[in-house]
Design a protein around this nucleic acid. Structure first.
Lengths: 348, 348
DNA sequence: ATTAGCACTCCGTAGATCCGAGTGCTAAGA
DNA sequence: TCTTAGCACTCGGATCTACGGAGTGCTAAT
């Protein structure tokens, strides 16, 4: 798309005004705003051209123009110059991350931070466990045929589950089984653990060592349906969206909150943006999810020692101040990456 | 409050009609509905009396009457006869709880169940850990000065936290410390553990056994700020409330969702209702929380081997079918109690 | 005590009108 | 050829009016 300077300036101004005011922008308003001394009539001509290009449109005959999705896209790609973050905001953001080392809580804080600073909804894609390595397992006997299993992966995350067993195991059997596991599988990926278990199970159980059998019987169920433990999204400040004038229609909010509830769409979207790498901006329906039609999503990936493992983002109305939101998302991702990587939680 | 039979019948009918239709009920409608062959004029006289008593009121001169908060209260206390649960619904509900033994997931399912069956929001008060007993602790070394602590209480719940330490501990030191803990404190309440720790800390550290010192240094921080780990509320189906006509005003929903977010009000409310025991019904502003002004909350306590440990409930509009919601909440609480208590997760 | 009748009130809707904002077009000017 | 002034036109939103429907309260008769 190629535009002459004047058209670009006008489009930029129009979008900026619209983002600020929320009202369709007319030719007179735009002419007054602009440096070039142009008459409203001239501006109208240019606007007419921009409308032909599909960048703006009027909601009705005698209203001003508002940007189309395509217009926003062009604006974001070619016209936008992001504002640097205010020093004060930056410090606030840094404060938020200091004195916190638990990865789970860090992600939580990142999400909250995004919603607080932008007054929209903050979202964090939490890396799945697919790539994480088995570190340690503990079995705690609860009732006669119920065992609590605690699984620790090398990135310091803990999962626990109560598992019904076929027979009752003694405490010492469980300790032995845990030791067996911890020695045999330490450092291997969870997928490998699952594969190993399946293989063992196919052998005739008579041949097995008693301890192995116990371990298999107890932990088999744990790893069986562990494949669901994939990515997850964490959302903060959804309630901010109630205050966004562009969204304050019951049906829109309802669609949005339904999407927040199921999270599947969000998850897909964030996952896609993670693969892209770098800051992604989905405008309106671009994401392909109907529930986000009136929203834009700005995301940035974060990493752990250089490897991208997740995404942070902001969900707000399409009419948002991209020049302010983008740096906030960017900085949050960086701060989060920093906070996650020092000191390392991985095995030494 | 004493009412003659006819007034009672009329009030009951009026409220039932209003709950079904959502529109103010006029004298003609009410007269037609009622078995007794009364003329609208007579009905009007009775309605006038009921209005004087503060049980109903008109939104404006030429509209019918709607129940006041006081009217609902009288209805619920004196006039309501709950419907027995449909067999089909009951079976659905039982299905939901079968094949699940993890307490956490059970609570989750209870909450979902309530929202699905009633089409309102389901809520569960999750018992705090105040009364739970220390069972086992594990320390996992992450980085040089970061230790993952895993705390298991006797009700099978697991908490974990990454703790920064002052110096680096070896794996064996951590194992020893864990053993120390598990032997000394097993079966005592968490509060006692905290007290014990504080006492130990006041001693001169030189006198302490090395293992004790390690245990204290690592776990001290865990128990330090563990007091926040109190009750929690779990909410499901908030999005159902978008579809409730009585609530579909942005500001009302916003207040509601703000309350859902902070959860403090909810927590107080459910905690109060737990202490009362039995089914509690808070109508409109009765709860005292402004955010719930247009809502009613129906709750029932659930227990674990006879001891009440939490509450389940439904949050819906004041204009809800109490005769249907009440048994659902009641049965859910019973089913949950049953599912929690067999087999016991407690120490044997 | 109950009821029929009637005047009155109020809401909600549908038209009618008007104003402001903005456009598109045309013709004149640079 | 680009720009501009002028003008007719359109449309949405606010305001006003009229009116029918629903319901009440009161009164007088049964």
């Amino acid at each position: 798309m190629k535009l002459n300077d004047r058209a670009e300036t006008l489009l930029r101004s129009l979008i900026e005004i619209y983002i600020n005011e929320g009202q369709p922008v007319g030719s007179r308003t735009l002419a007054r705003q602009i440096k070039l001394n142009l008459s409203p009539a001239t501006v109208r001509n240019v606007m007419s051209d921009l409308e032909d290009l599909g960048l703006i449109h009027s909601p009705h005959t005698s209203a001003g123009r508002i940007p189309t999705q395509k217009g926003y896209r062009f604006f974001v790609d070619s016209l936008l110059q992001v504002k640097p973050l205010e020093q004060l905001t930056l410090e606030e953001m840094q404060d938020k991350f200091s004195n916190e080392s638990d990865p789970q809580l860090l992600l939580n804080k990142a999400s909250e931070l995004l919603s607080q600073v932008t007054h929209f909804a903050g979202v964090v894609l939490i890396p799945g466990q697919r790539s994480s390595l088995f570190r340690q397992i503990e079995f705690v006997k609860l009732a006669s045929q119920r065992v609590l299993t605690i699984l620790v992966t090398d990135d310091g995350r803990v999962q626990n589950r109560v598992i019904p067993t076929d027979r009752s195991y003694s405490a010492s059997e469980l300790v032995e089984a845990a030791n067996f596991f911890n020695q045999v599988y330490a450092g291997t990926s969870l997928a490998d653990v699952r594969r190993g278990l399946l293989k063992e199970m196919q052998k005739d159980s008579d041949e097995m060592h008693r301890i192995t059998a116990t371990a298999l019987a107890v932990a088999g169920k744990l790893f069986d349906d562990e494949d669901d433990g994939g990515d997850a999204v964490m959302l903060s400040g959804e309630e901010n969206l109630f205050n966004v004038p562009d969204l304050c229609q019951i049906e829109k909010l309802q669609k949005l909150f339904d999407a927040f509830k199921t999270k599947q769409d969000l998850l897909d979207l964030l996952d896609r943006s993670m693969r892209v790498g770098g800051i992604s901006i989905f405008i309106g329906g671009e994401s392909g999810y109907q529930s986000l039609d009136d929203c834009s999503v700005v995301t940035a990936p974060y990493d752990h020692d250089g490897e991208i493992i997740g995404t942070v983002g902001v969900i707000g109305p399409t009419r948002m101040s991209y020049d302010e939101v983008i740096p906030v998302v960017d900085v949050t991702a960086r701060l989060l990456s920093g906070a996650l990587s020092t000191p390392s939680d991985r095995l030494e």
